[in-house]
Design a protein around this nucleic acid. Structure first.
Lengths: 272, 272
DNA sequence: TATTTCTGTATTAAGCTTAATACAACTTTT
DNA sequence: AAAAGTTGTATTAAGCTTAATACAGAAATA
């Protein structure tokens, strides 16, 4: 789940569970920096496992630098390294606020092809049967730490309007709009999912970690699907932040997202 | 991860991983209904495990009713039951659109106490040292299937202004506002995390499943923390949906969430 | 019809995980 | 100074997981 978790993680089922759970709690903030966590004995009881098992989980956490064990004293959380790295995603701009944090962002292209998209994509974009799409998968990194795994699908008849060189330099949306595509609206869906083998490796995260997932379907003014974006984000480096305002009177009083300024989009292409 | 996953899931580390990963893909829509998934042999290679291991994972999925195995033919995804149950959360109202789906919502109170909140909550609400809070944990169910696990923290000096009876009948926000609390703004943070032992049981989900997590900090007009809400949602039954509009001209062109109508809030209290 | 592909079944052995237990060393608290 | 609580270390045995292999039966395909 964490930066150094590409180190080895426990092999067994139970040890792994404990490890991932604690990992998650630390990066989530439920276990704060400096906080002393329950003794091995108590953890063993909490998770209904033996102390040896807890031990293995803690050893892995310690190796990952997430905790600090002190003989006779206890085990402390040590998440300084994490907290600082964490990037927020402003809900308004839908773009990580990396510039403000002085972090550099780079991208790595994992795959690029024109082939047939999976069913759910074809369906979402309302593609003709057997119509191919430009499929690109890339990982974005902040300070050399990967934080997002993005896959985009663009129908070939649209993707044909720009060259691969263009992709290397210009954000996808500008290319589309320059190609005469009239981008109108999009629908975004946020949820959570697990890190599979490939994604886990790409994001340098433990397989089985929780990831924030986003799907975005972009349509032109005629309602035709123009792009399908599927993104996975490391929760320890990324969260969707949104300010809310309580507005309305009486029975109609309710929450509403406060929207604001402008911004770029993170969805840009990179040369293979 | 799924409804029936309270059935038994594989014990081993690897089998479990495969199971959870496939589970996740199905409820996520990456594996569509009716789709035939790769053969056991190919899956074994993809996950770098033996066929026996894949077999155990598939058996569990089959027992959970998520897939259908046909001798000689292959294995098909069978997610009808899921798709229909899925509730969307309208981003504008921040409330699940359950009414529209004709689903009934109930709540179950898991714990209720006045005690000292964890560090990160006290810090977020800027509580005085050792100041206690009303802590309530409850699970919300749609058609008897749990979909959210909510924990709220309210400073005692505020929670004292209403009775436990009030909590049973009236949404928390109305109680707060009736108590003279001037609710102004809130900040919400969306991320992902793993299901721990307790939460997994409460949500009837496999331990180690991915969950959508939300934290909301509510403040009054003086900036004092009034409520801290921590919510975990089953991604197979819940997603955060938000329509977007492409707006602005030239360089300033960007995405913006489209906001709209009113609605109630799901955050209401229930009698112990 | 023949071939390929897939699931179902079975067996074996190696290896690892887990639990249970005991004790030593070190801190903190009483 | 004593007691309680913590991590470190070690041992043992049971049990389970995993991999590797082989073959039978069913379905799709050529």
């Amino acid at each position: 789940m964490e930066t150094a978790s590409s180190a080895k993680l426990p092999d067994g089922a139970k040890a792994r569970r404990v490890y991932l759970s604690l990992c998650d709690q630390i990066s989530d903030g439920r276990l704060c920096d400096g906080e002393t966590l329950p003794g091995e004995q108590k953890l063993a009881e909490a998770y209904s496992v033996s102390r040896v098992t807890v031990r293995r989980a803690l050893d892995a956490l310690s190796a990952a630098g997430l905790i600090e064990k002190r003989i006779g004293s206890g085990t402390r959380v040590c998440s300084k390294s994490l907290t600082e790295k964490r990037a927020a995603m402003n809900f308004n701009t839908l773009m990580p606020q990396l510039v403000e944090m002085g972090q550099s962002t780079t991208a790595r292209l994992l795959s690029f092809s024109y082939s047939q998209p999976p069913d759910y994509v074809a369906q979402a974009l309302a593609l003709n049967a057997n119509e191919k799409a430009q499929i690109a998968t890339r990982v974005r990194l902040a300070d050399n730490v990967p934080f997002s795994h993005l896959t985009t699908y663009v129908p070939t008849h649209i993707a044909r309007n720009y060259s691969e060189n263009d992709l290397a330099t210009t954000p996808l949306f500008k290319l589309l709009e320059r190609s005469g595509v009239q981008i109108d609206a999009a629908h975004q869906s946020v949820s959570a999912s697990l890190a599979g083998p490939e994604v886990a490796e790409a994001l340098e995260v433990a397989e089985g970690s929780a990831l924030l997932s986003m799907k975005r379907i972009v349509r032109d003014i005629d309602g035709n699907g123009v792009e399908y974006l599927s993104g996975l984000y490391r929760p320890d480096m990324f969260s969707l932040e949104m300010p809310l305002v309580r507005t309305g009177k009486g029975e109609a009083r309710h929450w509403e997202p406060a929207i604001g300024q402008t911004g770029q989009d993170e969805n840009e292409q990179v040369r293979p």
